[in-house]
Design a protein around this nucleic acid. Structure first.
Length: 482
RNA sequence: GCCUCAGUAGCUCAGCUGGUUAGAGCGGCGGACUGUUAAUCCGUAGGUCGUAGGUUCAAGUCCUACCUGAGGCGCCA
């Protein structure tokens, strides 16, 4: 009795003349004889050659694009040029017929928009196969990196009670009957009758809970889904996305930036080292796609060249104040090409970030020390600097070419009175975050952390232009299918 | 949420300034093919041109509204 072999295992230890049994999906069927078979164990397809003296014609008829088959035969050196080995199949069993007259996918390029509507089938394509293999690899590398550095994986809650995290609109979580909710005497919904006896939401960030971890275990990170009910319609936003949030005691803003840079480079290097086939496929795909574009719209570096460049070169580190000076001295500013104003105190717009990253420095840039007025309440107030026009906080953003902000982070305000002051300015009631304030009241410590948008990193590494194509089941306004 | 563009066969697209029975490639179906690499070759079916209304002798083509999708911007990761 022959047992099934995974294609990856066969390729790792091929034995010419040995009989193997393979199972997989037909990726192409050429000349009524040659099958490119894939079982998911590797990115690459394996060639099966049918022995036409033995295989019956009615079996042949059922072999079609993406049908599932089992083949048995001896391994041989390939006579063709595209591969080293092939299986000479003397028996074929159809495991899953494919109804080819109804099957929507084709062995040719189809648009991402069409495939998005077929999320249950798109993973069978070479492109999505490569993307989701890499997505797994990045997730694995995240844990590898932090474990090696002595961080602890902290599971922050998905359902949260506080609505003061300030990172965007939230999805309400409730078991109340939406038709007939219990009402208070004043006529508003009585959430004391709800499951948690309090209004609750899906989390927008695990940061505040991560700070609890950092102030006892030293170095922790969260890695989980987060939810934002913003009506954002862009290729860089999802309503449900995964975020990685390390939080470290005794780290200042510069330690924080150093870690962020090292972490980004580690993830990219890990994929370069472990997923060369997938990257080669995506690299070729991008080159093919850009053939139809004019020269100036194409990428300066190929996907793999760009990943190597980012992994091997230092990120540029500047302050917000320096960024404003660079922008005000720039050509587009002088020619009034920027749509939004550039002045100290105003937030950097996408067009400004893009100029700094893609034109001026041509590498990833970390901008720090932003004006206090445009940043969150928990960011640490910087000491006064007479060179700088106003008060700043120890915040930092990591900006990547093509996708913009991939990381946002800060040193946290650990001084109780200053934090209370910032909360008052931001109209956040102290009762909402009493526990967050107690972290400062009892044994406070300087600490820092950042949030990395997981899908944005996967987007950068795979070169995909729309974030909906790097998560298996994207959730966006008006769309939660599958 | 705002702005712009698009919607023609199962898919990817063509259809010029409105004018006979709306085209191609791929895919499907039928057939050929014992060294193919998104195989190739021959034949064939398949479309109320996103929906509703309007202008006109005449609308896939012009106008209006709506629906769906994409891109840009904002919010951010």
């Amino acid at each position: 009795m022959i047992r099934r072999t995974e294609i990856a295992a066969l390729i790792a230890h091929p034995e010419i003349g040995k009989t193997y049994q393979l199972m997989g999906w037909v990726k192409s069927f050429r000349a009524n004889r040659f099958i490119a078979l894939n079982d998911g164990s590797t990115m690459n397809h394996f060639q099966v050659v049918l022995d036409l003296d033995i295989i019956k014609e009615e079996e042949l008829k059922k072999i079609s694009f993406h049908s599932c088959i089992q083949v048995t035969g001896a391994l041989a050196k390939s006579q063709g040029s595209g591969q080293d080995f092939e299986l000479i199949a003397t028996a074929v069993t159809i495991l899953g017929d494919n109804a080819p007259d109804q099957y929507p996918l084709q062995p040719k390029r189809q648009t991402m928009e069409f495939l998005r509507q077929k999320a249950h089938l798109r993973m069978r394509t070479n492109t999505f196969n490569a993307i989701f293999r890499i997505r797994h690899g990045v997730a694995f590398a995240v844990h590898q990196y932090f474990n090696d550095k002595g961080f602890f994986y902290l599971h922050s809650p998905i359902i949260t009670g506080s609505d003061a995290e300030g990172a965007g609109e939230m999805f309400r979580v409730s078991t109340l009957d939406p038709q007939h909710p219990p009402l208070t005497e004043s006529g508003s919904v009585d959430f004391s009758k709800d499951f948690f006896e309090h209004p609750t939401n899906l989390t927008v960030s695990g940061q505040l809970q991560a700070e609890i971890g950092a102030l006892s275990m030293g170095k922790v990170y969260t890695f989980g889904p987060t939810f934002r009910a913003e009506n954002s319609n862009t290729p860089r936003h999802l309503a449900e996305f995964w975020m990685i949030e390390p939080e470290m005691a005794f780290h200042d803003i510069d330690d924080n930036m150093e870690l962020a840079e090292e972490f980004c480079k580690y993830l990219i290097r890990y994929i370069l080292d472990h997923y060369p086939d997938e990257l080669a496929f995506l690299d070729a795909r991008l080159k093919e796609e850009e053939k139809s574009l004019p020269q100036d719209k194409r990428r300066a570096l190929s996907l793999i060249e760009q990943l190597k460049f980012v992994a091997d070169n230092d990120f540029e580190k500047i302050t917000y104040t320096e960024a404003i000076k660079i922008l005000q001295a720039s050509k587009p500013y002088k020619k009034k090409k920027f749509e939004f104003p550039v002045e100290w105190g105003k937030d950097l717009q996408a067009e400004h970030e893009r100029y700094l990253v893609e034109k001026h420095f041509q590498k990833p840039v970390i901008v720090k020390d932003y004006p206090k007025a445009i940043k969150a309440f928990y960011m640490r107030l910087n000491p006064n600097d007479t060179e700088v026009p106003g008060e700043t906080v120890a915040a930092m953003d990591v900006l990547f070419p093509g996708i913009g902000e991939v990381i946002g982070g800060s040193q946290r305000e650990e001084r109780l009175e200053l934090l209370k002051g910032r909360m008052k300015e931001a109209n956040i009631p102290e009762e909402e975050l009493w526990w967050y304030l107690e972290l400062r009241q009892f044994g406070t410590a300087p600490h820092s952390g950042f949030g990395l948008g997981f899908e944005r990193m996967v987007q950068f590494i795979t070169g995909m232009s729309n974030i909906r194509d790097v998560i298996p089941f994207p959730r966006t306004p008006g769309n939660a299918a599958f």
